[in-house]
Amino acid sequence: MDHAPRPLASTRSPSPPPEAPAAGAATPADPGRRDFLGAAFTIAGGAVVLLAGLDAAASGETHVPPPGGDAYNWEEHRWAYVIDTSKCIGCGSCVRGCKAENDVPDGFVRTWVERYIVGPGGSYVDSPKGGLDGFPPVPTAFTPTKSFFVPKMCNHCKETPCVQVCPVGASYRTKDGVVLVDGKSCIGCGYCVQACPYGSRFLNPATHTAEKCTWCYHRITKGLKPACVEVCPTGTRAFGDMMREDDPVRQTIDHERVSILQAHLLTEPQCFYLHLDMEVR
């Protein structure tokens, strides 16, 4: 049985026939290799074109309503955040407010405050518990000439490294500009935690899924401000809509000299900073 094809192949190989006679001589039971491959590719190609067409037709026909229903249209907003570091007093109200609002597990923070103490002789940076309980006085080995607080959080980048590395599509950026994690899809691999250059993500020890600042998506879609902005006593933090021309945050970004963190990474953060020192990364 398995010897059968061999004599056939050997009888054919010594006399390589020109194309036309071979095709003509082929009987229906013995098609030439060329014919067989040709037919196979034709059928496969046809199937691919058919499937692609079906897919395109399916996606083109249905118009999907925005996920918020009538109450909130995500195509009418594009959120942005402004942090004026010169106003921050390092009280940590934002960190506590975020924890209370979002049930952030112990030992982790979605937003935090860093303190920079800088002088000609050196620099010192700290963020005890992310600033949850405020900051203590610290002795420094050098004489500081300037010191300031910098609140940090997810930058909700337009070009998100974290979304790009997610292998299961659990991280995504909404049309209104918020980077979110789908806890049901997340497999807890931690790629996004490593990919984020700002250290904004962590793995929740209870759910074993990635977690991060959502700009309080459950609040902003109801017309409220994020909790951190709500409780900031000095107006350091501001949240606004880039699609509203009279929005104070948009006005600041359009007219003031704003900076972003780690601009060289081209992640296009949507958290903008005022009075940011070069020491801050």
């Binding site: 999907v64 909130y72 979110l180 789908d182 459950h218």
Partner: peptide, 24 residues
Amino acid sequence: GTFGPYRADNVAEQMKIRPPAHAG
């Protein structure tokens, strides 16, 4: 895949993930 390479239902889930705690 409705809006992109993610589960579109999650957007609505995130909107009502918990009641707002701070009221101003």
